[in-house]
Computed example of a mutant assay.
Amino acid sequence: MSTGHTSVPEVLDALKDVTYPAGKEQLISAARQAGAGDEVVKALRGMPAEQYAGRAEVARSVRVDPDSDPGTDAGRRAGQARRGGKPGLSQHLREEPRTPIQEEFDR
């Protein structure tokens, strides 16, 4: 079992010849045809099955190594999992709602 991870630039490089909008299966197929590695294909498989309008949407939705995201820890990821978020956005990119105390401090 591989423990390596891919990066967003690697994923986008494998999708450089894709014509958008494109669905998840089309992106996976294009990555395979471009000779992408197993980790890139695995990251694409982890995306929601939706239509993607462009590379920016793919970059926001592709699941790479969530532990490398700045500012995320196990507690925050667990909170995001409980609350859900915008459909089509990878779990590790979902924003947490502000608490009433945080909103009060911002006033």
Rank of each mutant, 00 (worst) to 15 (best):
G75A: 15
V64L: 07
A78F: 07
V40K: 05
P9S: 03
R55H: 10
T72H: 12
T6S: 06
G88H: 02
I28T: 05
D38T: 14
F105L: 13
Q26N: 05
Y52R: 04
V11S: 01
A30G: 05
V64D: 00
E95L: 13
Y20R: 00
G54E: 01
S2A: 15
G71Q: 01
G4T: 14
R98M: 14
A30W: 05
D73T: 07
T6L: 04
M47P: 01
Q80W: 09
H5G: 13
E10G: 03
E25I: 09
A78P: 04
E50A: 12
D13S: 12
E103R: 15
K16V: 12
Q26V: 09
M47V: 04
T72N: 14
I101V: 12
A74L: 14
G75Y: 08
R63D: 05
T99F: 02
Q51M: 13
G71H: 05
A78E: 11
T99M: 06
E95G: 12
T19D: 12
V64N: 03
G35D: 02
R32A: 04
Y20W: 08
K42S: 15
G37S: 06
S29Q: 13
L89C: 06
Y52D: 06
Q51I: 13
T19F: 11
V8W: 03
R60S: 14
A53P: 03
G88R: 01
K24W: 08
R83C: 07
R83Y: 09
E57M: 02
H5T: 13
D73N: 14
A14I: 00
P66Y: 01
E57F: 03
A43C: 06
S68Q: 12
D67M: 13
R63K: 11
D13E: 13
L12R: 00
P70T: 10
V8P: 02
L27Q: 01
G85H: 00
V62C: 01
R98S: 15
L44K: 00
E25T: 07
H5K: 08
A81H: 04
E104R: 14
V41G: 01
D17I: 07
P70S: 09
V41A: 04
A22C: 01
T3A: 11
A22I: 00
R98K: 15
A14N: 00
E50S: 11
P87L: 05
A43Q: 03
G23Q: 08
V40E: 02
K86I: 11
A36P: 05
A34F: 01
A34S: 11
